[in-house]
């Protein structure tokens, strides 16, 4: 789990497993709390991770989620195997959603997920190949001086 360059932990998210959806983000929040990270930074990380986790559960087959923590930043990478996103620009707009009724019954699918990840991240990169999957790179700086 620990490396010379900080802490790394890998999790697997199963698509369609609505019962467990959110449990990895909850775990990551616990890890960051144990380390003693600032609560605002934990909250931003937890929200971004939760949104990413829900997206995998709702849309993808499975995904690898990696938490990487260095003295400078928290990085969350989510690489999924799934349908991918045809139009990222559109998916980044608040309110755009392709959610099903089941997703909405879970309280999700309002088209706020990706914009909310971007809002909570200091750096956010997304790339997608339709038919293959989507990759998210979320970075939150630990030193917030001069940052958002």
């Amino acid at each position: 789990m620990s490396t010379e360059n900080g802490l790394s932990k890998r999790f697997e998210i199963t698509g369609g497993d609505f019962g467990k959806a959110g449990s990895i983000s909850t775990k990551i929040k616990e890890i960051l709390q144990e380390i003693g990270i600032n609560s605002t930074i934990i909250r931003r990380t937890a929200i971004a991770t939760y949104e990413a986790e829900m997206n995998v559960v709702m849309y993808a087959k499975k995904a690898d989620l990696t938490l990487h923590l260095t003295p400078a930043e928290i990085s969350i990478r989510v690489y999924d195997e799934g349908p991918g996103i045809e139009n990222i620009e559109m998916a980044m707009q608040e309110g755009f959603s392709t959610a099903t009724d089941e997703m909405r019954e879970m309280g999700f699918g309002a088209g706020l997920g990706l914009p909310n990840i971007k809002k909570n991240a200091d750096r956010f990169e997304i790339s997608s190949t339709p038919g293959k999957g989507t990759a998210l790179d979320i970075t939150i700086y630990l030193n917030q001086e001069g940052k958002k």
Binding site: A21, G22, S25, T26, K29, R43, G107
Partner: peptide
């Protein structure tokens, strides 16, 4: 942070979300 959440959603996501925020 610190809000009281009123909701009609009764699955575990309601508590997970409350915890996350």
């Amino acid at each position: 942070p610190g809000i009281l959440l009123l909701t009609g959603l009764t699955n575990a996501q309601s508590v997970r979300t409350a915890n996350i925020i």
